[in-house]
């Protein structure tokens, strides 16, 4: 019964979202579609980063690195299987299946990268993680730039444009459901315990390193998903898309929304994406604005927009203190 319930809770949101997304696809014009896709990808990135930075209280600065692992893996899969036609399916459905497989491969590759990076660095204090992940992002970029197989600095082009409103929407729902279910699980409790006090958590028998690594792997996998979606949204990827600036963008969204709040991350990701879209002329000042935003938020409201609360529970001071 329990198992059935959790399965229903995982599948139900997707089933509800699907018709809504199909409707949205029919209604949205081309410009709105582009903005919506952008918002969706950023929401996936912000919510997945929230798992590490918000729930677990670690600080990763290399989210774009995992994104690039997912993007390149997925791109390689779709390019390699471009001519494959599954015999028992019509062309469009066959392409969609290949695309889904490519996204899954991207997630798996990104998760593996997360494991490789997390295992050594998560045994230590949080600040090391920030630097190691920052370095990891740079290494990934230089490896891609130096590998002709991955297109070098120019990147990969002419990828099939498979990403649409429905795909991104389902991925967003899946990410949010994942974060939500994770937070309410034993695993999530352990992560919150690590965030609140690592020493105490360890004393209570929480395998801190193990849980941190698991959180890191989950977060990396969903970053990889976002990467795969982005690759097939623009149709081309290059190492420049996944630099430090991209990682910082995601960090700013998470910090602004409130470390630990899923809805905060969603709101901040959507808000910042739309704001950037409206302020395109001021591109040059974007990073300076991010920097000031980080400093000012930390000085004036370090818990971010929502803190660890969710949008619909403004009255609760701290979720972690509750007996829910």
């Amino acid at each position: 019964m329990r198992r059935l319930r959790s399965l229903a809770l995982a599948v139900l949101p997707l089933a509800v979202a699907l018709p809504l997304l199909l409707g949205l696809r029919a209604v949205a014009g081309p410009y709105l579609t582009i903005v919506l896709l952008d918002v969706g990808v950023n929401v996936i990135l912000a919510v997945s980063l929230q798992v590490v930075n918000g729930f677990t209280g670690q600080f990763s600065l290399g989210h774009a690195g995992f994104m690039s692992v997912g993007a390149y893996t997925a791109a390689k899969v779709t390019l390699g299987l471009a001519d494959v036609q599954l015999a028992f399916l019509p062309t469009a459905a066959s392409d969609a299946v290949v695309f889904a497989g490519a996204l899954a491969a991207g997630m798996a590759a990104a998760a593996l990268a997360g494991l490789l990076v997390g295992l050594p660095s998560l045994r230590l204090r949080g600040d090391y993680l920030a630097i190691v992940t920052l370095g990891f992002g740079e290494i990934i970029r230089s490896v891609i730039e130096n590998s002709p197989w991955l297109g070098g600095a120019l990147g990969l082009t002419s990828l099939p444009l498979e990403t649409g409103v429905v795909g991104v929407g389902l991925a967003v729902v899946a990410t949010v459901v994942m974060a939500w279910r994770l937070l309410r699980s034993t695993q999530g409790r352990a992560l919150l315990a690590i965030r609140e006090d690592e020493v105490a958590a360890e004393a209570m028998g929480v395998d801190t390193t193990g849980y941190k690594v698991r959180a890191f792997v989950i977060s990396a996998a969903f970053a990889g998903l976002a990467g795969g979606l982005v690759a097939h949204l623009i149709g081309s990827i290059s190492p420049g898309n996944f630099g430090f600036v991209r990682s910082m963008e995601i960090v700013v969204m998470v910090v602004l929304g409130g470390l630990g709040s899923i809805s905060g991350a969603v709101v901040a990701a959507a808000g910042l994406t739309v704001a950037l879209e409206l302020l395109r002329e001021f591109q040059a000042y974007r990073m300076v604005a991010y920097a000031l935003l980080l400093i000012v938020v930390m000085l004036a409201r370090p818990q971010g927009l929502l803190g660890t609360r969710e949008l619909w529970e403004p009255w609760r001071r701290r979720r972690t203190g509750g007996a829910a």
Partner: peptide, 10 residues
Amino acid sequence: LITAIGVSLL
């Protein structure tokens, strides 16, 4: 840590 990153970016 976040403020330090902000200063660096600034």
